[in-house]
Simulated scan of single mutants.
Amino acid sequence: MKILAAIARETGKPFSVEHIEIEEPRQDEILVKVVATGVCHTDLVVRDGMMPTPLPAVLGHEGAGIVEKVGAGISKVKPGDHVVMTFNSCGTCPSCKNHDISYCHEFFPRNFEGARSDGSSALSQDGTPITSNFFGQSSFASYAICNELNVVKVPADIKLELLGPLACGIQTGAGSVLNALQVSQGDSFVVFGTGSVGLSAIMAASAVSATTIIAVDMNDDRLALAKSLGATHTINPSKVNSTEEILKITGYGAKFALDTTGIPAVIKGAVESLAPKGTCGILGASGPDTEISFNETHFMSGGRRLMGIVEGESNPDVFIPELIRLYQAGKFPFDKLIKMYDFQDINQAVEDSESGVTIKPVVTMPAA
């Protein structure tokens, strides 16, 4: 079947919107008519050659759409169901069996290698294969193939255009707070970086009534938005020392901190801002060989903790519907982060994301 797709053909170059072919779904696969897809920083990291996903590739991993066809072995969804496509996993390793799906032992090959487990691709152009299966979906396209392990059925009465970002960025921020750190009522929480992930973390902390919620960023407009979404305090580290300010606000340091920047110096400051027995979560790194250093005595003597977090430690089948319920209850207004773009304008969406003009771009597919 002919589909429309945005192809990353060359490292660091704009996406090329072209017609390509997609295979029929196999027995264990699901064909989804994509309605909209979020644009995530990870898509751009791959486009820019910082991950070994082979180009040319169809990226996109925050897809939302309607099930078109299912293979004979599929029972989880049926044609006509509204779904979100999230990260992929194997379903059989010790982590998956323990419901720690985001720490699947095959997370990297299932999400970044750009092929089915047998090495084949569902996408091609004039007989030449194009890298597909990115995060088990490659949803920068009018149709995508996924499987039961990374598809989540969602209510049909919620606009699908909004729901794609719940698959990764927003799930990561909110899940880091609710699942990994387990911030709760009365806690103090500080987030470093107020992009879509950091702002989602703030909304989640507010939803569980954390008492002190501190946003740290050098963009005053983002800090103002953070305040409107639940932050009780904001800090611009270009104007003041963020660690000193956090200690001043909390009296002894924060119980929880979350770094969304991946910058070693920022992570060091986040650890320094922790109270005794406090925990800092980190969501990314600025490069594959990046190292973090901090004062051993301060870290050890206060019983402080540093933890890596992937995809918000979420079980998407449970957590994405939970986020939708919070949204419906008015406690998680993630729609305030989203700006819609026509699919043909995907490169403008990317540019606006990279410049900071747009927090969470979502590209919508043509109706036909």
Rank of each mutant, 00 (worst) to 15 (best):
K2I: 10
I3P: 01
T11Y: 08
S16P: 04
H19E: 15
K33C: 05
C40K: 14
D43N: 05
M50D: 09
M50I: 01
M51N: 02
M51H: 01
P52K: 09
P54F: 02
L55C: 07
A57Q: 04
V58K: 01
G63F: 12
V67Y: 06
K76M: 05
V77A: 04
G80D: 15
M85P: 00
M85Y: 02
T86G: 00
H99C: 04
Y103F: 09
H105I: 02
N111C: 04
G119D: 09
S121H: 12
T128W: 04
I130Q: 08
N133W: 15
N133E: 07
F135Y: 10
F135I: 02
N147P: 03
P155D: 09
G169A: 13
S176A: 15
A180R: 12
Q185C: 06
Q185K: 12
S196A: 15
V197C: 05
I213K: 05
A215L: 10
S228W: 05
E245K: 14
G262A: 11
S273D: 03
L274D: 07
A285C: 00
D289S: 14
E296W: 02
G303C: 05
R304I: 03
I309T: 12
E311L: 04
N315I: 10
I320T: 07
L326H: 11
Q328W: 09
F334K: 14
L337V: 06
I338C: 07
K339Q: 15
D342R: 15
F343Y: 12
F343L: 14
A349Y: 11
V350P: 07
T358S: 07
V363Y: 08
P366H: 14
